[in-house]
């Protein structure tokens, strides 16, 4: 190998056999020509039969992969869109349902409130009625008892007047007593 790369150490000492001429450089050497033809033919054959088909395969695979990915992305997008549509529909349904529920509840509450108010009013009226009746009854009873008392007192006074001497002071005392008793009764 080393000999291949650095072959010509001996060349320096070697004498050119004939007169060197510039045109020698322009005439291709047979061995080099043969080597060049063989090397180029092999490269051409490999490029033609293997390299270009390989690169076309790669490009096709890449194309297919990109197409597949695009199709997949489109599919996913369509799915997502239909899902979104579904969600939107569900959402609007839920909202309208909630609205109707709220309306219903409001109506119910209104009805219940009216009911309660009416009942309360009735109750209040009833209580007032009762209270008034009771007061009336109490008043009547009180009047009756006063009447009884008065009549008893009158009787008593009459008894006392008839029984004892009735002077002015005694009369006054009697009246005062009566009034006091009356006042105590109040």
């Amino acid at each position: 190998m080393l000999q291949l790369l650095v072959p010509a150490l001996v060349l320096a000492a070697e004498e050119a056999a004939e007169e060197p001429s510039g045109i020698d450089l322009l005439i291709p050497e047979t061995s080099e020509l043969i080597a060049g033809i063989i090397a180029f033919a092999i490269i051409f054959f490999v490029v033609w039969k293997w390299a270009l088909p390989a690169i076309n395969r790669t490009l096709e695979a890449r194309q297919a992969a990109i197409t597949g990915q695009v199709a997949e992305a489109e599919k996913t997008k369509a799915e997502a869109e239909s899902l979104l549509e579904d969600y939107k529909q569900q959402l609007s349904e839920a909202r309208s349902k909630a609205d109707s529920i709220v309306d219903e509840a409001k109506a119910t509450a209104e009805a219940v409130r009216g009911d309660i108010v009416a009942k309360a009013e009735a109750h209040a009226a009833e209580i007032t009625q009762k209270a008034r009746a009771e007061a009336q009854a109490e008043k009547a009873r009180a009047a009756a008892s006063i009447r009884d008392e008065i009549s008893a007192l009158s009787v008593e006074i009459a008894q006392k007047a008839t029984a004892g001497a009735i002077d002015a002071t005694a009369h006054r005392a009697l009246v005062d007593q009566f009034l006091q008793e009356l006042g105590e009764m109040e």
């Binding site: 450089l25 322009l26 005439i27 291709p28 050497e29 080099e32 020509l33 080597a35 060049g36 033809i37 180029f40």
Partner: peptide, 8 residues
């Protein structure tokens, strides 16, 4: 060397 240029 002239070989390869000439050939190609």
């Amino acid at each position: 060397r002239m070989a390869i240029p000439v050939f190609l």
